[in-house]
Amino acid sequence: MRIALIGYGKMGKEIEQIARNRGHEIGLIIDQDNQKDLNADQLKDIDVAIEFTNPESAYGNYQICFEAKVPVVSGTTGWLDKMDLVKEKCNAGDGFFYASNFSLGVNLFFELNKKLTKLMAPFEEYNADMEEIHHIHKLDSPSGTAITLAEGIIDNHPKKDKWIEATSMKEDELSILAKRHGAVPGTHSVTWHSEVDEITIQHLAYSRKGFALGAVLAAEFMPKKEGFFGMKDLLNL
């Protein structure tokens, strides 16, 4: 399989190594210095594009790939205000795979979070808050993973209507505390607390390898597919 890597930072390089080890060819690498090379001619022999860039350029990158009929796997976060537009393209026949986090462990954590929220919902004495910690180069805050966790709580708890990146005492708001320290790959915690005790679930990433492998597995899943897909489709969750 011929893969285009759009974004060649630390994650892109990790993805490249895993893809090559799994027998794939990297047919195109797009970085800051050669963004003009992302065009239909360069994409004509590409089976799938893996996109890890930034919120400002992501949507434009998708459009170029869609026009070239190349399915996209993206882990870029912070662009979700354009999600409906991307889904419209998928309904028209393009292929797109999005995950706020490609780690197998994180996606199991998402399901655990939803299950715990359903269990806690009847007990009014408990309230939830969240914390996420990432490396200092993380561009978006809170992380896409934290937002996915927050949405899992909001969708499954009758009194939570929205999340806020601040400490809130309002019953309908879910507080997210986002921290940026050193080279932390990613730590996410959800805590349910009452006056007498608390329950915390937490996921700690030790390296980027788990994210990169998930992205390559998603790329292997996507060739010739049309529609919008995510980790639930890949992992049959």
Results as ranks from 00 to 15, higher is better:
L28I: 04
T76Q: 03
A146D: 00
E125I: 11
G12T: 11
E173K: 12
N21T: 01
F228G: 00
D94P: 00
D47E: 07
E151K: 14
K36R: 14
E151R: 15
E151M: 05
E111R: 06
C90W: 13
N34Q: 02
I6M: 04
K82W: 03
N21W: 00
T145A: 07
L149M: 06
E198K: 15
K224I: 02
D233C: 00
I50H: 07
F96A: 08
N156Y: 14
K225I: 04
G7P: 04
Y98E: 00
I15E: 02
S168E: 01
E25W: 02
H157C: 13
F229Y: 15
F97C: 01
N91H: 08
V216A: 06
Y206M: 06
E165C: 15
T191G: 06
K44F: 00
K44L: 02
H203Q: 09
I64V: 14
H135M: 05
F110R: 09
I15K: 10
A183V: 07
I64C: 02
E151Y: 09
G182R: 11
K162A: 03
K114Y: 01
A178C: 14
R208W: 09
H157P: 12
M222H: 12
S168N: 02
G23R: 04
N21M: 05
T117P: 08
Q42F: 03
A99T: 07
L174H: 09
K69I: 00
V86W: 13
S103T: 07
A178H: 15
K69D: 09
N54S: 06
E124N: 13
I46L: 05
T145M: 00
A218E: 01
G27Q: 03
E151H: 15
K10L: 12
N101F: 06
C65M: 11
I154A: 07
I50G: 03
I64Q: 01
L139I: 14
K89P: 02
I133D: 02
V48Q: 02
K44D: 01
M11Y: 13
G214Y: 03
K69Y: 01
G186Q: 01
K118H: 10
I64M: 03
K10N: 11
E131K: 11
P223E: 02
S189A: 15
A128Q: 05
K159F: 11
G12F: 05
H203R: 05
N113A: 15
M120I: 11
I18K: 08
I3E: 05
D81N: 11
E131N: 09
S100E: 15
T145W: 00
E25Y: 07
V184R: 10
K225H: 05
T53E: 01
E132K: 07
E226T: 14
Q17N: 12
S189K: 14
V73Y: 12
P55T: 02
G60K: 05
Q32I: 13
F229I: 08
T200K: 15
Q63H: 15
E131C: 13
N54F: 01
S57Y: 01
I29R: 14
F228R: 09
I26T: 10
L204Y: 12
K44M: 07
A58P: 01
D94F: 10
V184F: 01
A121K: 07
D33A: 15
E125Q: 14
R22K: 12
I164L: 13
A150Q: 02
F221G: 00
V73Q: 03
